[in-house]
Amino acid sequence: MRHIKAIAIGLAMYVVSITVLADFFSETKIKAEEGNAAAQFNLGLFYAQGKEIGQDFDKARYWYQKAADQGLAAAQNNLGGLYDHGIGVAQDQSKAVGLYTQAAEQGDAQAQYNLALMYEQGYGVAQDYSKAKYWYEQSAEQGIAESLYNLGVIYYNGYGVDQDYAKAFELYQQAAEKGLPDAQNNLALMYFEGQGVAQDVTKAKAWFKKSCDSGDGLGCGNYRIIDEAGL
């Protein structure tokens, strides 16, 4: 069953108009230059997203670094993302792991997810399913659907744990109820095969439909197969 492999590195900034955005940028830049960590992080976001000012990942890295040096977890996570993917910098996944770790240990849920993925895949660090499981669990406790899903994959396949379909089903269900298409598809498969739960083709079809409606190609394909078979 598929893993969610994408690593999210951005946090949303909400603005109401171009004028407000320009004013906010100017105010943010002044505060950032005065040493305000939150403003430095937001300025990094401005440059990373390129809203009205032109995308500049070198400047994004600069301001993320300033905020990260002051211990701001979100900045450490986003800076880690730049190094992880080689965006605006030479790719350095070992450095990314270090930055994710700093943020994860402060309780940043996205960093915990990112760090878990690095340990699971062996990116920038020796592969360690036990540490991957730990950090997925920390992130999942804060409601990150992708962590719930990837924990489900770990239990489904028995990666570093005893294979446990019932536990995998439980985790997929939690992620599916949060609207994650991959989890909805995998949950449907478990209903269809009767793995970790009593077989229920009706529920399988319903979850395949939800996955398809959420834009998942596998979910759509599985739904069509069941529907054309008259199940």
Rank of each mutant, 00 (worst) to 15 (best):
Ala75Trp: 03
Glu177Asp: 04
Ala32Gly: 12
Ala68Trp: 11
Ile144Trp: 02
Gly179Met: 04
Ala140His: 12
Asp227Phe: 12
Tyr165Lys: 15
Gly35Cys: 10
Gly81Leu: 04
Gln76Ser: 10
Ile7Arg: 10
Gly81His: 02
Met190Glu: 07
Tyr129Met: 06
Asp69Arg: 07
Ile53Tyr: 09
Ala132Ser: 07
Asp58Thr: 10
Gly88Ser: 10
Gln102Gly: 09
Tyr191Val: 05
Trp135Asp: 09
Ala206Phe: 05
Ala73Tyr: 06
Ala166Cys: 11
Tyr64Gln: 09
Val161Leu: 12
Tyr191Ser: 03
Gln174Asp: 03
Gly160Gln: 05
Leu231Met: 10
Ala204Gly: 06
Ile154Ser: 05
Asn157Gln: 15
Val201Arg: 05
Val89Cys: 10
Asp84Leu: 05
Phe25Glu: 00
Leu231Gly: 03
Val153Asp: 00
Ser214Glu: 05
Lys31Cys: 08
Ala109Glu: 14
Gln195His: 13
Gly160Cys: 04
Leu99Lys: 05
Ala60Lys: 01
Thr28Glu: 06
Lys209His: 06
Lys209Ser: 00
Gln142Ile: 12
Leu43Glu: 11
Leu189Phe: 12
Lys133Ile: 13
Gly230Phe: 09
Asp58Cys: 00
Trp207Cys: 08
Gly230Tyr: 09
Gln40Ala: 08
Gly152Trp: 01
Leu117Gly: 06
Ala96Leu: 04
Gln184Asn: 09
Leu11Thr: 03
Cys220Phe: 04
Lys59Arg: 13
Asn185His: 13
Asp164Glu: 10
Tyr123His: 13
Arg61Leu: 04
Ala96Met: 00
Tyr159Gln: 13
Tyr134Leu: 15
Gln199Trp: 12
Ala109His: 02
Gly221Met: 01
Leu21Thr: 09
Phe46Thr: 00
His3Met: 06
Ala140Asp: 13
Leu187Ala: 02
Gly50Tyr: 08
Leu11Glu: 10
His3Ala: 02
Glu105Met: 07
Ala176Pro: 04
Lys205Met: 12
Ala166Leu: 14
Tyr223Lys: 07
Asn157Ser: 15
Gly88Arg: 04
Lys178Phe: 05
Ala39Asp: 13
Pro181Trp: 04
Leu148Glu: 09
Leu187Phe: 01
Ala12Glu: 15
Gly122Lys: 11
Glu193His: 15
Glu33Cys: 10
Phe46Gln: 00
Phe25Ser: 03
Gly50Arg: 06
Ala176Thr: 07
Met1Asp: 08
Gly219Tyr: 01
Met118Phe: 01
Ala229Ile: 01
Gln127Ala: 13
Ala6Tyr: 08
Gly143Ala: 14
Gln142Trp: 11
Ala132Met: 12
Gly10Asp: 14
Gly160Met: 00
Phe24Gly: 05
Asn77Glu: 08
Ala37Met: 09
Ala111His: 13
Trp135Thr: 09
Glu52Ala: 14
